[in-house]
Design a protein around this nucleic acid. Structure first.
Lengths: 124, 124
DNA sequence: TATTTAGTTGAACATTTATTCAACTAAAGA
DNA sequence: TCTTTAGTTGAATAAATGTTCAACTAAATA
């Protein structure tokens, strides 16, 4: 009985199934990148910011006004989005204008909204 | 000067922009559902489970073996996925077989993987 | 019937993370 | 130059969340 048959607190039940799927599963990096990306868009504030920027390049103060939140909070989240490379910024006088830097993000939203609609949430 | 011009710690800078975007932004529910859905798939363990189930209907023990994790941990996460309606289960003797209950989920993965590839991660 | 095993579940613990607060920088204008 | 304002940043606090552990249920089997 091979060592790798007892890698957790289970008895091995279907060795062939386990071995086959283990070979087919994507590598660690894939899951890490996917989880990191989904975490990034799994926050309501960041989602709102991205929807604003999808409409128009907008300064921090206006975003804060639109979302009824503090400049500080918005700025923190914009820094997160900027460090992840899905938004970019441009300084103009005292103001900093942010905009989307990733066309794929809105595509993901479309598919997700489609997903939610098909789950019975029609008023989206 | 209307009341709604000072809803945060900012001075109103571009009233027209703010008012226009405020009208165009989706409702609260949309962001809540989107965030909830993305949170669900923003965890590496749940992502791995979903990829396993995308290959084949699998019992808890086998999933635990494939992912080298405890039955308890997997069972907790499966409960989360089940309560969200993206996986379903079927009992057969002592074993419980889980499978995907949502075709849209894999679609979201495809788009996300495409996104990551275009961001320069080629070895996905 | 007694035992073994697959799976579930609640509580506890540790980690992550979003917002607030205060202090700061930089640019505009008086 | 002094003041005001847009925006950033680090620390602190609070809330959310994933795993472990132990106790439990239910089904198969000896």
């Amino acid at each position: 009985m091979a060592k790798n048959e007892f890698i957790c607190d289970c008895n091995m039940i279907h060795k062939e199934v386990v071995d086959t799927i283990k070979k087919e599963i994507p590598n660690e990096k894939t899951f890490h990148y996917l989880a990191t990306f989904f975490k990034l868009i799994a926050d309501e504030t960041r989602l709102r910011i991205l929807f604003v920027l999808a409409k128009k390049e907008t300064c921090v103060c206006d975003i804060a006004n639109i979302l009824s939140m503090s400049k500080s909070s918005i700025s923190h989240q914009l820094a997160t989005l900027r460090n992840s490379g899905i938004v970019k910024c441009r300084k103009e006088g005292k103001e900093v204008y942010y905009s989307l830097d990733d066309a794929h993000v809105t595509k993901v939203f479309e598919v997700a909204i489609d997903h939610i609609k098909h789950k019975g949430e029609e008023n989206i």
